[in-house]
């Protein structure tokens, strides 16, 4: 298979890339890791006139914790960079848990975090992770930069709120007030298959008290499911059997699973509830600072 014809440019700066997108008037697409875009081009689900390859723009491959504790992930950070980052493993457990579960190791060597969030696949691990972490996306267009909160960024399956002449340049995860905890679990029949169900849990904890929490689901709905309202069961509370059970129940109720060859809707909802419990129990058992 090969894509329909397109023009290709590989600009050296973001400003140049934006000019190309602007000139494309909606018929230009950004190519980062390409692990979703290239298959879509080959299957001719997408047939842009112009491809704007951003891989040769320097300075976009940073993983940076600012002094205030916020985490910044540049547009060319590959999944495996996050998987191998010592800082991520020490300071951002939800991302650390999700990174080795994204696609397969070879795709992880090429695909990007920000690209995956933009792709907004209902099965995507990173869009769910970003929603649970209350993250936001910094985008740049001809008029400058703006920041879009994740809840406003993913509009639906494969749809985000970028304008045609804007590039997502960075993902931002806000600093925890206490200590960042959490986890990510995914059930898949084999590596690289679409998830039967995935659960992202982000916790902001002080001692054993939950200051804030976030939940999101992938694979159990027509879009990434924002289950952050379930945080109400935990905020200001300790992680006890009762609060964990309540939160897991609330999250599971927000899933919108459909019965298919990967399992019944009922089964998938049960998996969601079980995964939320497992992640919360694991975090309650940890010695907290």
């Amino acid at each position: 298979m090969y894509p329909s014809r397109f023009k290709y440019e590989s600009p050296k700066t973001i400003v140049e890339a934006i000019k190309l997108l602007d000139a494309g008037k909606g018929d230009a697409k950004v190519l980062a890791g390409g692990q979703s875009l290239v298959p879509m081009l080959k299957l001719r689900f997408a047939f842009p006139d112009q491809i704007v390859d951003i891989n040769n723009i320097p300075g976009l491959d940073y993983i940076r914790f600012d002094a205030d504790g916020s985490l910044h992930i540049g547009a060319l950070v590959r999944h495996e960079h996050l998987e191998k980052s010592v800082e991520i493993s020490m300071r951002q457990p939800t991302i650390a848990a999700a990174a080795p579960l994204v696609a397969d190791p070879i795709v992880r060597a090429r695909g990007t975090f920000v690209g995956s969030v933009c792709h907004a696949d209902p099965q995507g691990d990173w869009a769910a992770t970003m929603i649970a972490l209350h993250g936001s996306i910094v985008v740049q267009g001809p008029k400058g930069k703006r920041t879009i909160a994740m809840k406003d960024f993913v509009l639906g399956p494969y749809a985000n709120s970028l304008n045609y002449n804007e590039i997502a340049i960075e993902a931002v995860i806000p600093a925890p007030k206490g200590v960042a905890r959490g986890g990510y679990l995914k059930l898949e029949r084999r590596v690289g298959d679409f998830a039967t169900a995935s659960v992202a849990v982000a916790l902001d904890m002080s001692g054993d008290t939950v200051l804030n929490a976030g939940f999101a689901l992938a694979g159990v709905g027509g879009k990434t499911i924002d289950a952050n309202e379930a945080a109400s069961a935990l905020i200001g509370q300790k992680l006890t059997e009762a609060t964990i059970a309540k939160a897991a129940q609330l999250v599971a109720a927000l899933a919108e699973p459909r019965t298919d060859h990967r399992g019944s809707a009922e089964y998938k909802r049960h998996i969601v509830e079980t995964f939320v419990k497992r992640i919360l129990v694991a975090n309650s058992a940890q010695k907290v600072a």
């Binding site: 290239v38 190791p105 070879i106 795709v107 060597a109």
Partner: peptide, 16 residues
């Protein structure tokens, strides 16, 4: 191996 890292060569353009 692309610059030493494994990639699926059906999912990258030669021009890249």
């Amino acid at each position: 191996l692309f610059d030493g890292r494994p990639i699926k060569s059906c999912t990258m353009f030669a021009v890249q």
